[in-house]
């Protein structure tokens, strides 16, 4: 008791993932999420938050982001983005952090939207926008398995509507 008096440990928030796995994060870092903030401030001495729709891999990634921006503001990404490389649009750490495959980015974005972390959500959206930047219609359709939903006469209509269709 006496021994512990001088170094009060910071309260840890326990995040329960979809699989039931528990990840711990410091309270000051967790407050970055408006969702967790409202959970903690609404009820006294709540230290466990259940996140049934986020899996533990994504939670670990979110916690990594929370810890990095615990004491500083994340950089704001300018709209519209200038390049299809993330390094040229934002800081090197952010670009390295978001350098993941498509599914991971989508999961992270959904999680950030749920947790109401606007800077992380914008970072994910910018990463997705990078993947779309400078691509033609056919490339995009092939890459993201988008079926051609437009009927053929509509397709012709699109062709003249879109000046850059045939480039």
């Amino acid at each position: 008791m006496f021994y512990n008096f001088n170094k009060i440990e910071e309260v840890k928030i326990r995040l329960r993932s979809a699989e039931g796995h528990i990840c711990e994060v410091e309270e000051s870092a967790a407050l970055m999420s408006s969702f967790i903030r409202s959970m903690i401030e609404g009820f006294n001495e709540v230290t466990e938050v259940s996140l049934p729709n986020i899996n533990s891999v994504v939670i670990e990634k979110v916690i990594e982001y929370m810890r990095h921006y615990k004491d500083k503001d994340p950089p704001i990404i300018k709209k519209p983005i200038i390049s299809s490389k993330m390094e040229e649009n934002t800081s090197a750490w952010d670009a390295g952090f978001i350098d993941a495959d498509w599914n991971m980015v989508v999961d992270l974005m959904t999680a950030a939207d749920y947790l109401m972390m606007i800077p992380l959500r914008d970072l994910c959206c910018a990463k997705m926008a990078c993947k779309f930047k400078g691509r033609s219609i056919d490339e995009l359709r092939a890459e993201y398995h988008i079926e051609n939903e437009f009927p053929s006469e509509m397709e012709e209509n699109l062709e003249f509507q879109h000046p850059w269709r045939l480039e």
Partner: peptide
């Protein structure tokens, strides 16, 4: 919003 108008139109045609 992160894309420019031309890219928005291209994406909108998919």
């Amino acid at each position: 919003e992160f894309l420019n108008y031309r890219e928005i139109c291209v994406l909108g045609a998919t």
